[in-house]
Write a protein that binds this DNA or RNA. Structure first.
Lengths: 123, 123
DNA sequence: GGATCACATCGACGTCTGTCGATGGGCCCA
DNA sequence: TGGGCCCATCGACAGACGTCGATGTGATCC
């Protein structure tokens, strides 16, 4: 039997030898996937830059053609990233004439904050 | 010339037709990569679960053998994920005897918060 | 000292993801 | 009505990523 672990203040089955996990539990698999999806949207340098550009824009919004050049990516690629950000609920998309204007979603900051709390615990 | 965009309160070169980007600027490429690296560590369901398990553990720490079963992954895979979380500065690793104990890093929550502020603006 | 245990590393494999050029669909202006 | 512009979608491709079994490395126990 292992003395070190036996002294730990957790309920451990009295089995000799080996590591007996104290049945720890965390987030459910589905919940974890939802949270990961939010962070995944922020897990790419291009999307981080795109989001920061929009957030710091004078009007708080920008269209694809405003974003292509600053990030140095092709138009389809920028469009693809914006789609992911929109699907994650981090930006909103508004079609005005030929242009598609993107703005940081109202609940974006809170979405990240609550996700963080869900993982780390909101104590 | 496009009337809609010409009325926008941004300095736009007087060029006829086409989208003339108002030279928007956001985070630097290197800064964006650093931030994305933090979020990337949280962009996987398995790592989200692992982190939440550790955060909710009675002692605030857990070893690999405590984590393998709850997430339903092999030991090498869990070890791999913990390595990534540690490299991201989200968890700390402490070797005690045969076991490696992982705990949520002291500055984990702040790391995510400051990263979020850097992207969305800390207004 | 030999057996056992916890963990890290390695090599391999399938899948996901970021990127591009080409193309198509709307909208606007002349 | 025709042409030009913005944007989304498609198909393709390289690279990154998650996962596993097998193996190596220390530390512990008998």
């Amino acid at each position: 039997m292992d003395l070190v672990r036996a002294l730990l203040p957790v309920v451990v089955p009295a089995v000799a030898g080996g590591c007996r996990a104290p049945r720890l539990a965390g987030l459910a698999a589905e919940t974890a996937s939802d949270i990961a999806r939010t962070f995944k949207a922020l897990a790419d340098p291009a999307r981080v830059r795109l989001l920061s550009i929009i957030a710091s824009a004078p009007d708080g919004e920008a269209c694809i053609c405003d974003l292509t050049e600053p990030v140095g990516l092709s138009q389809p690629t920028v469009s693809h990233h914006m789609r992911l950000l929109a699907e994650a609920g981090l930006v909103t998309r508004e079609q005005r004439g030929r242009w598609a204007y993107f703005a940081v979603a109202p609940g974006a900051r809170e979405l990240v904050a609550t996700s963080t709390d869900a993982v780390l615990g909101d104590l």
